[in-house]
Write a protein that binds this DNA or RNA. Structure first.
Length: 1082
RNA sequence: GGCCCCGUGGCGGAACGGCAGACGCAGCGGACUUAAAAUCCGCUGUCGCGCAAGCGGCGUGUGGGUUCGAGUCCCACCGGGGCCACCA
């Protein structure tokens, strides 16, 4: 069959030729080079812009179409900004250390360095194929020796500093030593005074202040990976995020980073950055600040310190709970049970341990409970979180508010690492305490109520104390009142609620804690109880009101003091309420009561106000091969790693040694000792050094740094990738990070306006794009390092990333067979006989949509898409799918739409037979000029806010317009060229080709983006819709400058409108100039 | 369980509180072809009336509210997704 496709039709084949030719040209001409200060071509007057992507792990599988979504977006944005005349830094590096890279190397039996280099090369090839305008000289990899030398250097900076709480910032450790020497600072009470300490003790004291330190901590040990993991790398099921292996808690001596010192700044500085709110929220939650108080309970001769956020509920505390690991337990545990101690408090010997039954002494019960708690996995603990366990330790503590003797328990629902590891339990106002109290028959004393409940108490005087305590029925009332009022059901509904409350069935045992809203509604469906919300009610609302002594609904509302009641589900716990006990707090709103109680406690010496954080220090060492070695040695003979010795800067880098067997020591045995693979490099691990006191033998630190180390600062190395004297040149750092985007150019500032709000305050990277999966890990660690570097004067901004944008995921269909196992999506086809049925090897499979990736076997590679349609079509499609921040399904059928668009653009100005441009030099007709300028204006606006889907739609519209306007005749150059330039950021290859075929020399990369003529955006006449009672009934054309009365007259005069107004009185005419008219008539 | 985000045609999605469904896909009809593909033109939320141009009703998950006017703002519910999950 003869192929009659014209030789210059824009097909995949033609696109492939165009694309590779221009990619070569771009490389050869270095068109993306962004000069640093002092480099050739640098112009201080030119505004700068730093655009950054979260760099990838170069996995062996290569890129799939989900990866470049964000990269394409930043590339378009960067290209657009270059065309506005900015000096744009856009580069792509590789996060190549860490578990995934090492795991891939293990799987394929190659050395990690070899496989990493291969993978990086493959990623680079794939990205180049997509036409990315990355500046290659800045594309560093975290595994480059010249890179990790500086990772080690930064580690030494952190190691060499301490956090001064008085100044709220990190300072060099030498200044701390100096303060001790001079006596301006004294050692903490627990430590020996400085002047009476020996050298070793002084060193230990100093070490205890460092931001990077060795400590025996209860770590997450993952034997299957042969390494410890950070809290952030462990899932809520207690398994490793990588590989899903079991993780065990175990004390080990490890490197830690004192990120907790920065908790407050990491929290408060979120205010100043332009980040998506959900991400900020996740960071806030992770940091987990809570204000509260330490309260001391007398407990025999000891004082037992608890932490609470609700000191105002102290009077409601009816028992005390310690974490099983709490150090005071051994001291407090009683020798024998008291006479009156119930059986259930004494623990239960488990089956297999001989006779089942309560333990003979508290000591035995405690021991058994601790052992059982340690055996229980996190998963088990969570699955039955409502079933509280614990044992009484035989001791009592005195409630400082009531003077009562409260029993002391240990229970694993109290965590050892948070607060003081001890709590006062207030079962009336805390769900967990309530669950525990019910389990153990402990008293429940309520001391505060939502406002509505206080009101309801007045109404329902019939309810006894007993009823309230046992069932916390007030939450039901609160639920229902909130429901009734917020639904604006009105007096009838309110009466319904009252009727329901009075007739509501007793709480049953299987619904022990509280009636939820759903159950309340269920109850309302019970015949006889209420008969439905709108149905027959047993009493009329007047009757109900009269019952309660009100004559009208308004009067009732007035009694409540406000028209809306805020109480909702859980209000009794959450605390928008009023305290009623103890006497000092009577009638105070909770916020006030908390403050008042805090003061009282402090005044009476029972404790003090404090702030606690959930954030823990960062576990910084791993027992793996493929990571940055620590620049740390120990004296030979110091077997327990007691005294780390930092290597001097000139000894950096500490290169990762070549070893044959780099596998981690994986095992199933949770009690096995970690054995870092670097221990096998014997030559490397032991060395002779002269650290100023003569040559001595030293041992190297054998752990490596975690995955996150390199990604904590790579964006700084992009700025100055080849610098051998510093991690980044100070002036260069200031230029790219500190100066405001668009600051120097007048018009540029205006252009950035819509985008700029986030850029005033913190400085840093102007736009950082990446997935939301890094909301806490990478983004928190990087902020921490950046702040340390800022405090030490190495960087000029307190925050690294001024504006953050999260792109969504690309989802793709995935298929499971009857066993629920995923099958190769590429080999599934739709059954032609019955659409909607999908077949894999002739067997039906079930379709679902999920994030594209290896695990769902639904990967589509950009290489395939490029081969079928070309890179420009691929880029355009990914941007056209929908809003960048949204997750959306990959639908290959839709790609032809954007491909056809490019084809039409091409054909509009190129002769498909000869390849010659077919444009005229004619002037544009008025209507076309207006359309063009409206498009320019719209596309610019869309580009500024990364709304590429709508920008493309506008370009398609423009092209459709041009196709119609110049059907059968050449398109004027005055339309063709702006169209090409607007297309250039989105589809750079075809734009370059068209530009050159239109007879223009050079690349479009540095051409100026078209500007809209404001005169072309205003219109002389406008068509306004005219509504009658909110429905469009007609249209009038009026002068754009027409005043309100003219528009009003025109609207009323309209024939159609008049027809609708016939026989009606016009009450009001609303005229929104330039928008519409609405006539209110009856 | 808590917090957060999202519900618009057959599909992806447009829409400063002001003409709902831009643009694309799919579908239908037509032109060009011996034919098909490609390409081009037109139609395409839904129901009713009409031969027709057209006219009208209903429509943004459900129920309320605010407003001259609600996809958009507020409340509740239903459904989907995400994050955290015994943090006192």
């Amino acid at each position: 069959m003869p192929d009659d496709t014209p030789p210059f039709r824009y097909t995949a084949a033609l696109a492939a030729g165009i694309e590779s030719r221009w990619q070569d040209r771009w490389d050869a001409d270095q068109v993306y080079r962004a000069p640093n200060p002092g480099e050739p071509g640098f112009d201080a007057a030119q505004p700068k812009l730093y655009v950054l992507d979260m760099f990838p792990y170069p996995s062996g599988a290569g890129l799939h179409v989900g990866h470049p979504l964000g990269y394409i977006a930043t590339d378009i944005f960067a290209r657009y900004q270059r065309m506005l005349g900015k000096n744009v830094l856009h580069a792509m590096g590789y996060d190549a250390f860490g578990l995934p890279a090492e795991q891939y190397a293990l799987d394929t039996g190659t050395h990690p360095r070899v496989s990493t280099e291969k993978n990086v090369a493959n990623f680079r090839r794939q990205l180049r194929r997509l036409g990315m305008g990355h500046e290659s000289r800045r594309g560093v990899s975290t595994t480059d020796v010249s890179f990790y030398k500086w990772t080690q250097w930064i580690f030494l900076q952190i190691y060499g500093s301490w956090f001064d709480p008085a100044q709220g910032r990190a300072r060099p450790i030498a200044e701390l030593v100096e303060e001790f020497e001079r006596g301006t600072r004294s050692a903490p009470p627990a430590a020996k005074p400085w002047d009476r300490s020996n050298a070793q003790e002084r060193a230990a004291l100093i070490d205890s202040y460092r931001l990077a330190y060795l400590a025996d901590v209860n770590v997450n040990w993952c034997p299957a990976l042969g390494t410890v993991l950070a809290n952030e790398e462990v899932t809520s099921e207690g398994r490793s995020e990588r590989g899903n292996h079991p993780v065990f808690k175990r004390p080990m001596r490890q490197w830690m980073m004192r990120i907790t010192a920065y908790a407050e700044r990491l929290l408060s500085d979120l205010e100043g950055v332009d980040w998506p709110e959900p991400i900020k929220l996740m960071q806030r939650n992770w940091i987990g600040r809570s204000e509260g108080a330490f309260i001391d309970f007398e407990c025999g001769k000891r004082r037992l310190r608890v932490f609470t956020t609700r000191p105002d509920t102290l009077a409601g505390a009816t028992y005390v709970v310690l974490a099983p690991e709490h150090p005071a337990v051994d001291e407090l545990v009683a020798a024998r049970w008291g006479e009156t101690v119930p059986e259930s408090w004494r623990g239960r010997a488990l089956e297999g341990g001989g006779a089942a039954g309560a333990f003979a002494t508290p000591g035995e019960a405690v021991e058994a409970y601790r052992a059982a708690a340690a055996r229980r996995s996190d998963l088990e603990r969570q699955s039955d979180a409502r079933d509280k366990t614990g044992v009484f330790i035989g001791a009592y503590a005195v409630n400082p508010s009531t003077g009562e003797r409260l029993p002391v328990f240990i229970a694993d629902y109290v965590l050892p690492g948070y607060g003081t590891g001890a709590i006062m339990a207030v079962p009336a106002h805390d769900q967990r305490d309530f669950d525990f109290a019910r389990q153990f028959g402990l008293p429940i004393r309520d001391v505060l109520y939502p406002r509505t409940v206080l009101a309801m108490r007045h109404f329902c005087g019939a309810a006894t104390e007993e009823e309230r305590r046992g069932e916390m029925w007030f939450t039901v009332l609160a639920d229902f009142l909130g429901y009734v009022t917020s639904n604006s059901i009105g007096p009838e509904g309110f009466a319904d609620a009252l009727a329901l409350i009075r007739s509501r069935p007793r709480r049953t045992e299987d619904d022990p804690t509280r009636l939820t809203l759903e159950t309340a509604q269920l109850v309302s469906d019970v015949p006889g109880a209420l008969g439905g919300r709108r149905g027959s009610v047993r009493v009329t609302w007047q009757e109900a009101l009269e019952d309660f002594g009100f004559s009208s609904f308004d009067e009732l509302c007035a009694w409540f003091g406000e028209r809306a009641f805020y109480a909702r589900t859980g209000a009794a716990f959450a605390g928008d309420g009023y305290a009623v006990a103890p006497a000092e707090l009577e009638g105070l709103a909770t916020g006030e009561a908390r403050r008042r109680m805090g003061t009282l406690i402090e005044e009476r010496g029972h404790g003090r106000a404090t702030v606690q954080y959930k954030l823990r220090d960062w576990l910084f060492s791993r027992q793996r091969y493929w990571g940055e070695p620590f620049p740390i040695v120990y004296e030979e003979g110091d077997a327990k790693n007691e005294r780390p010795i930092p290597l001097p800067e000139h000894m950096l880098p500490v290169e990762l040694p070549e070893i044959d067997d780099y596998r981690p020591l994986a095992t199933d045995d949770p009690s096995a000792a970690p054995r870092p693979p670097l221990g096998r490099a014997r030559e490397w691990a032991h060395l002779t050094l002269d650290l100023g006191n003569g040559p001595r033998r030293y041992r190297r630190e054998l752990n490596t740094m975690p995955q996150w180390a390199g990604s904590c600062w790579y964006y700084l190395r992009y700025l100055d990738p080849a610098n051998e004297r510093a991690f980044v040149d100070a002036q260069t750092e200031r230029y790219w990070m500190l100066s405001r985007r668009g600051g120097a150019g007048g018009s540029a500032a205006a252009e950035g306006e819509r985008f700029a709000p986030g850029l005033h305050h913190s400085g840093g990277v102007d736009l950082y794009v990446g997935g939301a999966e890094h909301a806490v890990l990478h983004l928190l660690y990087a902020r921490f390092w950046h702040k340390v570097l800022f405090d030490l004067g190495h960087v000029s901004t307190p925050e690294p990333f001024g504006k953050l944008f999260n792109q969504g995921y690309i989802q793709a269909p995935a298929y499971t067979d009857e066993r629920g196992v995923y099958v190769e999506a590429a080999r599934v086809s739709e059954d032609a006989a019955s659409p909607g049925t999908f077949l894999y090897e002739g067997r039906p499979v079930r379709r679902e949509f999920g994030k594209m990736g290896k695990s769902l076997k639904n990967v589509i590679t950009p290489d395939d898409v490029c081969a079928e349609y070309g890179a420009d079509s691929m880029r355009l499609y990914e941007m056209y799918m929908g809003p960048l921040e949204q997750s959306k399904p990959w639908n290959p059928r839709d790609i032809v739409g954007v491909h056809r668009f490019l084809q039409r653009v091409w054909r509009g100005m190129i002769d498909e037979e000869s390849g010659a441009a077919t444009v005229s030099e004619a002037e544009l007709p008025e209507e076309t000029r207006r359309t063009l300028h409206r498009t320019i204006e719209g596309v610019r606006r869309d580009f500024e806010v990364l709304s590429f889907n709508t920008a493309i739609a506008k370009l398609i519209e423009l092209n459709n317009h041009l196709g119609k306007a110049f059907a059968g005749q050449p398109m004027p150059r005055a339309a063709a060229e702006p169209l090409v330039l607007m297309l250039a950021p989105l589809a750079p290859h075809i734009a370059e080709e068209l530009w050159s075929r239109l007879g223009r020399a050079g690349s479009v990369v540095r051409e100026r983006f078209p500007e809209a003529d404001p005169a072309m955006l205003t219109q002389e006449t406008v068509e306004l819709p005219v509504q009658v009672a909110g429905k469009v009934r007609g249209r009038v054309v009026v002068a754009a400058s027409a005043d309100e009365s003219a528009v009003r007259a025109a609207a009323l005069a309209d024939e159609k409108v008049a027809a609708f107004l016939a026989g009606k009185t016009v009450h009001k005419v609303i005229v929104v100039p330039g928008r519409m008219v609405n006539i209110v008539a009856s």
